[in-house]
Design a protein around this nucleic acid. Structure first.
Lengths: 156, 156
DNA sequence: TGACTATAGGCTATATTATAACATCGTTGG
DNA sequence: CCAACGATGTTATAATATAGCCTATAGTCA
């Protein structure tokens, strides 16, 4: 992502937090910036190494606390299958930021190029909700991660 | 699960592996039995502690290798959000065991009672496949884990 | 202003989850 | 038999994540 776009995203994130009474502190902003710069899922310790270049004293809790905050605000998602974190780029997360903080999302993980694409497909969500309702289950959050081969890698 | 049912499941698993040219060795059978006895998702190190009661020399690789095998055979699933393993109880996995080994599944995780229910909902799978196809992505596997409150806990 | 309170962050240690690497053993097929 | 392969034993270590305690800073209210 181009630096100017990252700056835009950071400012959006800032406004979004403010609207909710949360604070995107300098540290949290740094961590979010590093994730945006990565442009792909990045592990907590990779992030820590990057963060140390700016903040010598950084330790695991430094990163994990910032990540907890960012995930809670819906600015970052954790990809469970990769134990990695990725910035949320969907417009909803930033524009309609009044809705419940963590918005639902699906990930497509290409096992050839390791790229990850975020989707926000309401039909999928609907199907999941219906399946849950069928057994009386009340969902609050869904982790949907699909492994496979992306369009580019499969030559389409 | 009642002991006699566990025995049935183990024998089915055995037959299933045999049909595929895989061997459900004593060790693997022990690990599968422990997971079935747990009746809920169980962590690798919990499993290791249980296994040690029978096999003093057991170490992490002992358990992880058995788990790798069982997951590959579709007899056990890993619940990513919990870093835990659960036995696959769906009939398909055992009866139509000729299909691709790892069958798709969805999990409903109750955050009140920690129970986990496995679903195999084809509408959900279809929705995921369609969403993926829409962006040219070719899925091979999907991790679908829903957190919420189960029917029992929500009083329905 | 000054003390109160709550949140954020620094820092050390440690818990939890998972794998690498190499040795040994046992079965199976030539 | 013995070669080859798959399974397991064994030791060490990597990778991921959290506990707990202390300090600093910012907003709040008497």
């Amino acid at each position: 992502m181009a630096p100017q776009n990252i700056a835009v995203m950071l400012d959006r994130a800032d406004a979004c937090c403010a609207e909710r009474g949360a604070k995107l502190t300098a540290l949290r902003r740094d961590v979010l910036e590093l994730i945006l710069e990565a442009g792909q899922p990045v592990g907590a310790y990779t992030l820590l190494d990057l963060l140390k270049l700016r903040r010598a004293g950084a330790a695991p809790p430094t990163v994990y606390r910032a990540l907890d905050f960012l995930v809670e605000q819906g600015l970052v998602h954790k990809v469970e299958r990769l134990n990695a974190f990725v910035a949320c780029l969907t417009s909803e997360a930033h524009e309609h930021c009044a809705h419940g903080h963590t918005h639902p999302a699906q990930f497509l993980i290409c096992r050839q190029c390791n790229s990850v694409t975020e989707l926000e497909d309401h039909l999928v969500l609907h199907a999941v909700e219906k399946a849950a309702a069928r057994v009386g289950f009340k969902p609050t959050r869904a982790t949907i991660e699909v492994e496979g081969v992306c369009a580019t890698c499969s030559g389409n």
